[in-house]
Design a binder for these strands. Structure first.
Lengths: 239, 239
DNA sequence: CGTCTCCTTGACGTTCATCAAGTATTGTGG
DNA sequence: CCACAATACTTGATGAACGTCAAGGAGACG
């Protein structure tokens, strides 16, 4: 999940993620203005935090390369994973309400992000209605994604959830122009388990079954999908 | 849950829910402007829809009195309930992303709402930064609420979930100035079950237990909380 | 007053968690 | 590049929480 079609300090106007990030729907002149307030951070290494729960909220972060997990911590000090964020995704939107981050956001791999200082972003938003609309749209999308996640957790069996997860990842990568039938996924099975409300044991058993059926494999961070349709049938079977 | 401290067509400036609705943080002159774009609808009776999935998105709705449930439908035609919305709450924010409603919003009781036409609201937002900020804040809050709901579903037992639900309802009513140890809750047990990812049978059994312990009762739509602390201990006990 | 929906209670079953032990993989210091 | 530790993954045996099925009772509504 390295950066695509763009050098390290690429401006928004040259960024491959333009179509799904803040710049979506903006005129070139407005993209220029957006560009000027973006704070392009040096790469984060695996394990570095974008922010942690309790910290003051100052910026939203657009992911340019890599992968970020967002989670909270339960009363047993265990991570409750809310999502995995890919290039073009925005993290931090949950913090606007009270000026303080509610969750943890950590790089799971070498990751590059653009920080968008909230004050300046919203100021520009009042001057560029399309930008404002795009922020609303991104937040709305985040609401829907969360509800969808809840729905999957409550309505689907363990096998369906895992099939669904693989397919969603595949589709998100495809939408971003990456290879989607075979890809590196630097996510621990333990993390997938948390995200899907399962145990690592269950994830392991189900992956074993999927592999035996010849549907897919996931070994050493490398996912290979061999039978997309079988996975789709599994993910959406009544259940 | 009838309207509080305000006549039927009360303006925003006289509305009891001013502090938690869109008007929060606005200057009086701006509240006036907000007021002018609010479309105060006639009351909805139980069972009437604010909107349904697939409909075009035109307005957000601020609830002035009553109670609204928001849900989607799974592959077995069963409702998957995402939330119950009380006076001062906003519904419809999930629809901004794609101009089309994703969910169903239905009155569970006689309900009054203020419709806020989205076009006009965002236009005013660009002119009144505090209003814009308030919309962001409400949406952010909706994101957090959704994640919290997921967390409760995945991290807590059936008994904890139900105790938590009762306490959350009580607290939300208290925050809105209503009686909170004894209140009418026009919600079917079946709906609570859906919201908490349980069956009506399980809800019934647990309510029976809570009543036998002398913690609370919920009979004929009337909730009486007798031992708030016992419920709190139950809701937050590890496990 | 009768019907329909909702709620209650009991017996039983299923899914997935837990516990445990072993194997593979990754990371680290020499 | 290797030794060895730490972490992650696998596989099996067992169990618990909650769902499912079934039948009866109580409100609500015309």
């Amino acid at each position: 999940m390295t950066e695509k079609h763009s050098g390290f300090n690429a401006s928004c106007s040259k960024c491959a993620m333009q179509g799904i990030c803040f710049a979506n729907g903006l005129y070139d002149t407005d993209i220029e203005r957006l560009d000027q307030l973006v704070d392009r951070k040096p790469s984060l290494v695996k394990g570095e935090y974008l922010y942690q729960a309790g910290e003051n909220f100052t910026s939203l972060y657009a992911i340019r390369a890599g992968i970020v997990k967002v989670y909270s911590v339960n009363e047993h000090e265990q991570e409750v994973i809310h999502g995995f964020y890919l290039p073009g995704d925005i993290v931090g939107m949950e913090a606007l309400a009270c000026c303080r981050h509610e969750f943890y956001a950590v790089a799971m791999d070498t990751t590059t992000v653009c920080a968008l200082p909230y004050e300046q972003l919203t100021k520009l938003g009042t001057e560029v209605p399309n930008l404002n609309a795009q922020i609303f749209s991104l937040m709305s999308h985040e609401i829907v994604t969360g509800r969808l996640h809840s729905t999957i957790l409550t309505q689907k069996t363990a096998e369906q959830r895992l099939a669904d997860f693989i397919l969603m990842m595949s589709e998100r990568l495809r939408a971003r122009g990456y290879e989607h039938t075979q890809f590196r996924l630097n996510v621990l099975h333990r993390d997938v388990a948390s995200y899907l409300n399962l145990t690592p044991e269950t994830v392991s058993r189900i992956l074993g079954k999927f592999q035996k059926q010849g549907w897919m494999s996931w070994k050493r961070k490398e996912v290979v999908i061999q039978d997309m349709e079988a996975l789709q049938a599994m993910a959406s079977s009544a259940g």
